[in-house]
Write a protein that binds this DNA or RNA. Structure first.
Length: 198
DNA sequence: TACTTCACATTTT
DNA sequence: AAAATGTGAAGTA
């Protein structure tokens, strides 16, 4: 990754911790948990560029989302660096999974057209590809990578504290029942009763 | 019924 | 260039 376009970084405080947002003049390029991923000094981005405007809009929408006032994001996402399936899967996910809805890795893969199973009963696991894409999802939250659950159980997550954030988000959206007693160990075998998508 | 092993595409270091 | 990854399904015990 050589010199990318001007990347303006911004921070946002959420119930699940601090979130960093990076924007270009094309849209949100990255959203990550925690303070700042690498060394992003973000030296007073020129106020007036599209990137700065988008960054402010992204932070605002994220704030509204975490406040429960916003169920959908309207800001554009910059997937300029996305290759092949990556871009397709992210796009499909963004367009196919609304607020409060969940989908399985396999389902998303099939919806993205990755189910090109060979004609001899080749049980291909495109779900793994989707999982990998989610694992390195450049734009978390806005592209609802946290709404993608495994066919069995909850699935995994690479958020701040792992599945903790994912679980919080799913409960927040009402996709999972707010179980009263939750344990890290219980999370593994937690079965979302009635939350299983078709 | 529960658990272990196998399969493949893409991204990242 | 090589290894690892947020799974799914099947087979076996």
């Amino acid at each position: 990754m050589g010199a990318v376009t001007e990347l303006v970084w911004g921070c946002l405080d959420t119930p699940v911790g601090q979130v960093s947002v990076a924007c270009t003049d094309a849209g949100v390029a990255r959203v990550a948990y925690g303070p700042l991923p690498g060394a992003a000094p973000a030296p007073a981005p020129i106020p007036g560029t599209q990137a700065a405007v988008l960054l402010e809009a992204a932070v605002t929408e994220l704030g509204e989302y975490f406040a429960g006032h916003r169920k959908a994001f309207t800001i554009p996402v910059d997937l300029g660096r996305a290759h092949g399936s990556r871009r397709t899967v992210l796009s499909v996910l963004h367009d196919s999974v609304p607020f409060g809805r969940t989908i399985t890795y396999g389902g998303l893969a099939a919806r993205a057209g990755l189910d090109a199973a060979g004609p001899g009963g080749a049980a291909m696991p495109p779900a793994r590809v989707v999982g990998q894409i989610m694992a390195s999802n450049p734009v978390a939250i806005i592209v609802p990578c946290h709404r993608v659950v495994a066919g069995t159980g909850l699935g995994g997550y690479s958020g701040g504290t792992g599945t903790d954030v994912k679980h919080w988000l799913l409960v927040f959206e009402g996709a999972l029942p707010a179980t009263l007693d939750w344990d890290s160990a219980a999370l593994r075998r937690a079965q979302p009763a009635g939350a299983r998508p078709a």
